[in-house]
């Protein structure tokens, strides 16, 4: 049975893909039955946040070390809109998302002039600037106190119980995940991969590389903003922690743990990190950083392509063997085109 299933998955059978999708949706839908609902919401938000980073890191080869600016910036805007306008929470979250994308235009325009470590440093610098703005603009953000008492308003529904809020917030996160998936599997997404692998050649083929980079940067910021907005509503709180560099660091860690250039790895990474932090905090253990750090080191050393990436590599080698077996019988079997592009070994650029 399992062998059959694995074979289907390995050969990229569409039924297996729908099966996996269904399993994923079931997992997302049943999560708050197994874990504490606010933690379930955290997992969903961090998964989307990590995915947004993966668009840049995995698919475009740009390591943003300032993504907290969009997550936290949106959290503040969402909070301010929800508190001051009293509009339903999805409107506030969308306002936060739009703000994050607007913010990303100048940052992306300047940062994408550089690559590698310089790109990371420029994004970090902008994020820290936003941190100090949030710290000083006390009337709006509450400074060190944070923005407290963000309401969770949706007409006709009582969302005070986090269990119910999860189901109100989840569709927004799933929509964000769908957008990320569409981006990756569109012609635009394929150009991004080309830009990542060989920017000079992409330019030679006539693609405006910088414009592609800025566009994906803004889209990525929008998804990070969506996740940050839902996160702020879920906690009823936006704080300086949301725009601090440690948040940028954590999302990079989640993304790499799950496997960059895979999208779904971000979900695995988020489940692992958020659940682990929660379990450690509940057990009263102080050294959360040591444990997550050790796991990070172990994953980097043992599973170069992250949890999802390594699993996929194993499946890919199984598929090669199957294909080899089948090729012997029927010489005309084609490998699915999409998987060939998707299943590449990811090598982020310097």
């Amino acid at each position: 049975m399992i062998r059959w299933l694995l074979t289907r998955i390995a050969t990229g059978s569409p039924w297996a893909r729908y099966g996996l999708l269904l399993a994923g949706l079931l997992l997302a839908g049943s999560l708050p039955w197994f874990v504490y609902p606010p933690v379930a919401m955290d997992i969903a938000c961090w998964a989307l946040f990590a995915m947004s980073l993966d668009l840049l890191l995995g698919y475009t080869g740009l390591l943003s070390f300032g993504h907290a600016a969009f997550w936290g910036g949106s959290a503040y805007v969402t909070g301010v809109v929800a508190i001051r306008s009293g509009l339903p929470f999805p409107v506030a979250v969308l306002a936060g998302t739009a703000a994050a994308m607007l913010l990303a235009v100048p940052i992306g325009y300047l940062a994408t002039r550089r690559t590698g470590i310089y790109f990371a440093m420029v994004t970090l610098a902008f994020a820290q600037m936003l941190y100090f703005v949030a710290n000083q603009w006390r009337d709006l953000t509450g400074g060190e106190n944070g923005l407290q008492g963000v309401p969770r308003f949706l007409p006709g529904v009582d969302l005070s119980d986090p269990f119910y809020f999860y189901y109100a917030g989840l569709p927004m996160v799933l929509a964000g995940i769908w957008v990320a998936w569409r981006i990756v599997h569109s012609p635009f997404g394929h150009v991004l991969v080309a830009v990542r692998d060989n920017p000079a050649r992409a330019r030679a083929l006539g693609y405006p590389v910088v414009r592609y980079k800025v566009t994906v940067f803004v889209l990525s910021a929008g998804l990070a903003g969506l996740a940050g907005g839902v996160f702020a509503i879920s906690h009823g709180f936006a704080s300086l922690e949301d725009v601090y560099w440690t948040t940028s660091g954590q999302v990079v860690m989640i993304s790499i743990l799950g496997g960059i250039g895979t999208l779904w790895g971000s979900v695995l990474g988020a489940i692992l990190v958020v659940r682990l932090q929660d379990a450690l905090a509940m057990s009263g253990f102080d050294g959360i950083g040591i444990v997550t750090g050790s796991i990070f080191v172990a994953v980097i050393l043992l599973f170069r392509h992250g949890l999802w990436g390594t699993t996929r590599d194993l499946l890919a080698s199984a598929r090669t063997r199957l294909d080899a077996g089948r090729l012997a019988g029927s010489p005309h079997t084609e490998r699915p085109h999409e998987l060939a592009a998707d299943g590449q070994v990811v090598q982020p650029q310097r």
Partner: peptide, 12 residues
Amino acid sequence: NKPDIANNKAQE
């Protein structure tokens, strides 16, 4: 001493 952690812990 962090308000966001206090917020989460209180809820928990």
